[in-house]
Structure formats: C-alpha cells, structure tokens
Design a binder for these strands. Structure first.
Lengths: 358, 358
DNA sequence: CTGAAAGCGCTAACAT
DNA sequence: ATGTTAGCGCTTTCAG
C-alpha cells in the first residue's frame, strides 16, 4: 500500500481514472447521473489512492453538514446517557453525526450553542441548561431547528419534546394514596427546570385534591444526583424524633435510588414496609434487584423519534415550526417500592429475562 | 433584532464595518495583527449582523477542524460514560469538539473511522471495537493520530493508553488469597479484548503461583454487561449440589455488580460471608452502599491526560509516534466485598462525603 | 451522460 | 497594520 499523497483529492482520483473531477464527485453522489462503467473506474482509482471524500468541503457548497449538536448536562443521570445513546444510534443510521457539548447542569447553554453554530450544524438538541431567546432566534434565523428534550421553556420559540410530567406526578401521588400513604415528602431536582417543577406540581395537585395541605408535604432539593438525594434523604428522615412521612417521591430515578440506599443503609429503614418510595424516568437501573423501583416510564424511543421528526432533517428548507410542545403520555410501572394494592396486582412489571438494553 | 440575512459572511461584516474582509478574519483570530480600534469596529458590525464565523470554511484552508472523533461501544458500562464525560470536558476546554460514534462492542470500527475521516477530524480516540491495520494506516498516512483507550492491539501501529491490567488482575488474586480464599471463579468480558484477557491472565498467573491449577478456576463469559454477568453468576453458582467457589472476580465493576445482585437476590448468598467478590475499574457506582465493591481503580484522569498528550493536538505537524503503549499503574481499593485482612486494615477506602463526581 | 467553470466562506501569503 | 489575491476540495449550473 504505497503512500502517494497524504490526502488525495477528487482531482487526483480524476487524473488517475482519466475522467473529469466532476465525474468523481458524481461517482460518490448516490443518484447522480453517471455511467455505471465510469463510476466503477472512478471507485477503483479512489481505492488505489485511499481517497476519502471531504465532507467538510462539500458542506461548504451544500450548506448541510449532517452534524447535529447534542447538548448535555448531568451525565451522572443514566437517563441522559440512555438518551445520548439512542440519539447517536438513530442519527448514525440516518447518516448524521453527533457533535457533543457538555455543560454544567442548569447553566447557560449560550456558549455551547455558539460553538455549535460555528460548525454549521444542521440542528441542535438540548437536554440541559437554560436557553436564551437570543440563541433561539440565532438558530432559527439561520434555519437551524433547535429542540428541547425533556423540558420546555414557556413562551419560547423552541419546540420541545417531553412526557406529561404533571400527569406522571399525579400517577405517583395516586399510587401512594392507593397504597394507603398519609404523609408525604419529595426530593426535588433543578428548581429552575420545568421538568422537576411539573412533576412536583402534578404530585402536589393530586394530594391537595385529597385535602392534604401543601405545607404538610415535605420537600428537599437533591440536585438531580444520587449523592445529593442521599443527603436529602438524610435531612428528611434523619431526625428520629420527628414523625416520619410514609411516602417519598424522588423526582427522578437516580435520586430515588440515592435516597433508597441512604434510607436502608444509613437509617436502617425497610422499603416499602417503613416507607414507600417512587421515582420517575424508569431508567434501566430502576429494575435492578436492589431497587425494583416503582416509577413512571418516560417513552424514550417515542421522544427520540418525535425529536427527530421535529427537526425535519430531510426537508432542510422547510420553515421551522415554532414553539411546538406536545407532551407524550407517561405510564406508571409498578414494582416493589410501593406495596401493590389489590386493584393493581395485574399491572406489576414483569422484568424477568428483560435485559437492560431492551 | 432584524433579520438581515440568514447567515452573514465575513464579507457582509466587512462591508458594514467599512473594512476589508481580511480585517474581519483577523478580528476573529486571536493574536493576529490588527489595530484594536479596527477590531472593535468589526466586532460591532458582526454583532449587528449576528455574524458567527464559519469554522467549516476556515478548516478548509487551515486543514484543522478541531474535531476529535470518539468511538464508543458498550455505553451500558458506566466506565465509558465517565470516560466520555471526561474527554468531552477536557477537549471542550481545549477548544476542541467531540464527534461521537457508537459501534456495537467488539465489532469492526472501520465504518465509523471512515465516516470520521470524511469530517477531517484531527484525531480519533477508540474505546471499543476492533481496529484494522488498514484503518490505522489510513489515519496515520494523513497525519491523524489514533489512540486506543483502555485497550491495545499487539503489533499495531496505533498507540494505546491503559492501565496495567495484568498487574490489576494480580492485585485481585492477591487480595483473595490474603483473605483466605481457596477456590475461584471469574466472569469474563469480551473474549477478543485484551483488557479482559489481561485481567484474567494476571489473576490466573498469581493463583497458579500458589499452586492452583488453571482448570480449577471456573470461568463464564458475562458479555461485559450487568445482565450478562447476572446470568453468568447464576450458571456459576446456581447448582447448589456443586461445591461453590469462595471467590468471584468480575472482570469489570458493572459485571461484578450484576453478579452480586444475582447472588444476593436470586441465590440468597451473603457477601462476603458466603462468597467474596471483586471487580475492576472503580466506577462511581462501585462505592454505593449496596455494593461497596472491592476493586482495582483505573486512573481515568491520568489516562485521559495521556491520551491527549499522545495526540499532540498543539503540534499537528509532528510525526505520529507509532505503537506507544505504556500501561499506567493500577491500585487496589479495599471496600467490603472481600473481608479485609488485618494487614490491609488501614488501606480501606474512606468514601465518606465523597461525591461520585469526585 | 459528461466536462468546464464558477463559486461556497474563509485563511494565508504577498504586497503595500 | 491593512488590503489584494489566490486557493482549500467540493457541488452545481451550464453547455454540449
């Protein structure tokens, strides 16, 4: 394998194949009109020269890079890892590449978006951080769709994909009530994030319908992390003198897991005997034996699908639809951290033989 | 904020600022010679036009995209998630972007590398999958460094960064022996991967030094996943008639965790009373209360650092060093899945107050 | 179906 | 310090 030149161009290939440079371009463009025989000749020459088409150069004229920016915060939450994986798989299958940006959860995403813009990305998916209206219009003015994943920003032009968090919060409250809980506590996530707010809202709303006062519902922030929630659980339940709530809602699974571990291993509480617990997301870890967490499932695949649909990758010139927000239905998954009331017996998740990937 | 043109170019900015186009380029290039006053004028015009420099266009001439390809398999293993996060953070800080490729663990990475090459990436980091020599030379011939993370390929030109897996395997064996174990089992990972092979080798090697025969050491594959390891543990220990080994080495933490959960919740075994267990990697989850896994720590930060150093991002023209492979030292972390022999008491990890991020 | 030629938006000499 | 000019590697008219 000789080293003719470090990076052969379409001209080099053309020369070797004895054709014009445009012919080379055509040979590599599916569906362009070129004689099959000529294409073969070009491909052969390309192979000899180790030619790899330069997408950077082509995107200069086509105005499409096939790169999608994915902005992530909080990779400590497996939910987002799962999401990243799903996007990566799907986009790769669609011939797109994923450019990753990590930001501190809850911080501004402006800088990341600005950097993404420099790369002329075809779209941006935002799973974390705040989004300024300035960035939104910066993207939209260039025809670049930006979709918020698992969040929305009221009044924003950016579209969002999420599940019905308010409804999910209600489902949890409903389950606790059905299991006979009388007093309640929550570990909340990012106070600025609508996701946490909505789950709290639905939860509280449903409880208030039963005559429970908001002030009776205890609440501590868990920073959306395992460790933060473990600490939160300790401050909520550590004082053995105080009467202890009999139901705890972790606003997401990773926090519910942190809380459960702290409750069991630090406070020696039995779940669900001493205390029932629920989470939200249904991350793969939630079904593991130590947790068997009762939780609300987010329909990740649907959400990813809908995100992709909103970006209209195949119709780049289509005007961007602003501010679309259609929450997807969420569903309660009964496992073992809430005693299952008779009426729900048949709903209990059968995780047997079900791999996490599934 | 009016919409002058969807994407202003440096010419538009130049026109508005009343300067030449090169002046605009200079204004955005740190360290280039331009009067401060003129730069200000340019920046002002750029702001008015919402101008964002087009790095795609600039890389056409500079021959540098500042994009690094990161090829990942097995995102189900938190170890790699952690690695991804670390690379993303560090590279972003260095003004580089990360382009993600996910491949099925153990499969060929050729296609992913080919796609990366089209984007003229400045380097590739490979954390999974096989690497053909053809791809290696394809990259190297173009001056693109490719480094294998947590693996190496004997005889390959690609450099690798990893810890001393053989030594780590020995450390585990040593710990089991010190704790009085007499019979042993392993759950192995990718049989084609040197990482799993080396850990096994070190482990077995050390045991054989004590006169234990290789054939006495039981071994089942766990597919490098939580679920795979849970199944493996069941086949290893499910037969209650058979004498049961008293030490189990999970070739990585996620598998050790899967095994532990299966042993405890399916077979009602006590750890470490009935059976001692060890893992490898020291992922953040390993120190959680349900596991408190005794394991070998991989020095991720050092590994990331060394990977970056091997790529010589700041000296793009430097000839690529071939086949560098200097395993970093690994270290045993004592926790609770192996009874701690008196001599090691002071070594026990104090994870208190230590957040996972840390 | 094919080749010639004109850019895409920017950087990098090269003059001035 | 600044403007002019020639590309970078490709796609896309436009003729033929």
């Amino acid at each position: 394998m000789k080293r003719i030149s470090s990076r052969a161009t379409s001209f080099d290939v053309a020369a070797l194949a004895g054709v014009s440079q445009s012919a080379v371009s055509r040979a590599f463009t599916p569906g362009s009109s070129i004689a099959e025989e000529k294409r073969a000749k070009v491909l052969e020459a390309a192979r000899k020269l180790n030619y790899v088409p330069n997408s950077i150069a082509s995107s200069l004229t086509t105005k499409r890079t096939n790169i999608i920016a994915l902005i992530l915060g909080n990779m400590g939450n497996p939910f987002y890892v799962h999401v990243l994986h799903e996007f990566s798989r799907r986009l790769q299958a669609l011939g797109r590449q994923v450019l990753i940006f990590t930001v501190d959860p809850g911080s501004e995403s402006d800088e990341a978006i600005l950097r993404a813009l420099q790369y002329q990305i075809d779209g941006v998916i935002l799973t974390a951080a705040q989004l300024s209206t300035r960035m939104t219009s910066l993207c939209h003015d260039r025809g670049i769709p930006i979709v918020l994943f698992n969040r929305y920003i009221p009044g924003s032009d950016a579209s969002g994909v999420r599940c019905d968090n308010v409804g999910g919060g209600r489902l949890i409250a409903e389950a606790f009530l059905a299991a006979g809980a009388k007093s309640f506590a929550m570990i909340t996530g990012d106070p600025k994030g609508t996701t946490s707010q909505d789950r709290v809202r639905g939860f509280v709303e449903r409880l208030m319908e039963e005559g429970i006062r908001r002030s009776e519902i205890e609440e501590v922030g868990g920073q959306s992390s395992y460790d933060g929630a473990a600490r939160a659980a300790l401050t909520l339940f550590g004082d053995r003198a105080k009467p202890r709530p009999d139901a705890l809602f972790g606003i997401n699974d990773i926090m519910a897991m942190g809380a459960i571990d702290a409750l069991r291993y630090r406070l020696a509480l039995k779940i669900p005997d001493d205390l029932m617990v629920a989470g939200f997301d249904d991350i793969p870890e939630a079904r593991r034996a130590p947790y068997k967490l009762t939780t609300v499932r987010q329909p990740i695949n649907q959400m990813v699908e809908q995100t992709l649909a909103l970006m209209h990758l195949d119709e780049p010139d289509r005007p961007i639809e602003r501010g679309i927000d259609m929450p997807l239905a969420s569903r309660l998954i009964w496992r073992s951290t809430i005693p299952v009331p008779p009426a729900y017996r048949s709903d209990v998740a059968d995780d047997a033989g079900m791999d996490e990937a599934g």
